[in-house]
Design a protein around this nucleic acid. Structure first.
Lengths: 225, 225
DNA sequence: GCATTCTTTAACGTATACGCAAATAAATGC
DNA sequence: GCATTTATTTGCGTATACGTTAAAGAATGC
């Protein structure tokens, strides 16, 4: 049994998790307004923990609290996407560099290897959801290996903000074949301790991903996801 | 009269500002605990807005809420300092690059110029507080010119976290003469539209600042500022 | 009809109330 | 005296209450 399920978590914590889930899944649609009292009723608790949760999610850039109008689920534009991908590019590249400098063993890099294998398989079977999940895992693990807690937090926050948009573009974009070659190259650089190569390779990988995704958004006029 | 003072701001907002001020100024010392009810009394309001403010400041990495122990003002270690400076290095360097790419006019870059002049003067008169203020202005303006709201927010947050530590090292570190040469070089690169040079120059500037400051912290065993 | 003022509603911001559980103090057993 | 159990306190988490005020609706004047 997991720590989470064994421990009784507070209403505020439940509200944060549940609202976050509803937002990133699109259950609470981008651009929609929701009164605190509505959300409280939905979650089966009073306004107090809902407000506290909303404040936290506001800090994470997922929603906005506006007096009398309720909380507004923030939509993501292609401009937002560019901002976010720029940040991810810089911080993840540094993580890749640091990971390469750390001299990790093959054992330490097992999760990275596994996620790449999963992506390979997902591409073969054209299972896009599985690919997205493995891709997320790769990037998350890469950042973890960079050993900077604040970067982990920031990247997680930015990833949450673009999750809906990513899910949408997933079925429009071409099969991410190039992407996995990049992942392999980054991993190889880390294995060989080539910090600068790991950094630059990942950098290029992210820059390209940005152009692909933002290109799709702009082409399809998807400016509020 | 300023907008802020004319507009009646909510208790929560007042609590955020006041608590933030007290934390970054050291009035609420690093590592100390404070009960919600105490803070509420100090600020002349009930626990509700204090709790809301504390949640927001917790998201900003300035404090930690622990049941029964009150809010704990988070101390900053040299390890934290390294994490933060690594982030500032990456994000500000990107901002410098973007600023150079934007093709700003001399007029647009006036604030940068002025802050550099202020730093020059501060160094001549050995007025360290004035130098720190101008330095803060330079970096803030640089990031603003990078035109990425999320980077602005993240940099502001990280700056808040290290503000106390910076203030401490300010009177220990050598006069930041090299620093201002760097600033000039970055500005020149931006003026000339040399994006890569602006980026790399600022990068080196920040990396060096990190080593200077962290070196001081480690040498003096200042591991909880 | 349209604009304007007044009324009403309702959502939020904040204070207050209260139960629970953790920490401390007191009491009991040995 | 020391360990262990039992009271007591206290701080938080959450529900609730309530005043304020912005927005919507009704009424009035022209």
């Amino acid at each position: 049994m997991k720590d989470q399920s064994s421990k009784t978590l507070s209403s505020t914590q439940r509200a944060v998790r549940e609202l976050r889930r509803m937002i990133v899944s699109g259950e609470l649609a981008a651009g929609t307004d929701h009164l605190e009292s509505e959300l409280a009723q939905t979650l089966g608790m009073s306004r107090t923990p809902v407000r506290e949760a909303a404040l936290m999610l506001e800090s994470r850039g997922l929603l906005e609290m506006r007096p009398r109008k309720g909380v507004r689920i923030l939509p993501v534009s292609s401009e937002d996407m560019r901002e976010i991908y720029d940040i991810l590019t810089e911080l993840e590249s540094l993580a890749a560099q640091r990971a390469a400098e750390a001299g990790y063993s093959e054992q330490d890099l097992k999760v990275l290897e596994r996620s790449i294998a999963q992506m390979d398989q997902a591409i073969e079977t054209e299972n896009l959801e599985a690919w997205a999940e493995a891709d997320e895992l790769f990037h998350q693990e890469l950042v973890r290996l960079g050993r900077n807690h604040r970067i982990e937090a920031i990247v997680a926050m930015m990833s949450d903000q673009v999750r809906r948009a990513r899910a949408t573009t997933l079925f429009i974009r071409p099969l991410p074949v190039q992407s996995n070659e990049d992942h392999r190259a980054v991993l190889r650089a880390i294995q060989e301790g080539k910090a600068n190569e790991a950094r630059e390779r990942h950098r290029q990988h992210r820059l390209q991903a940005k152009e692909v995704l933002c290109g799709i958004l702009e082409k399809h006029r998807l400016n509020s996801l």
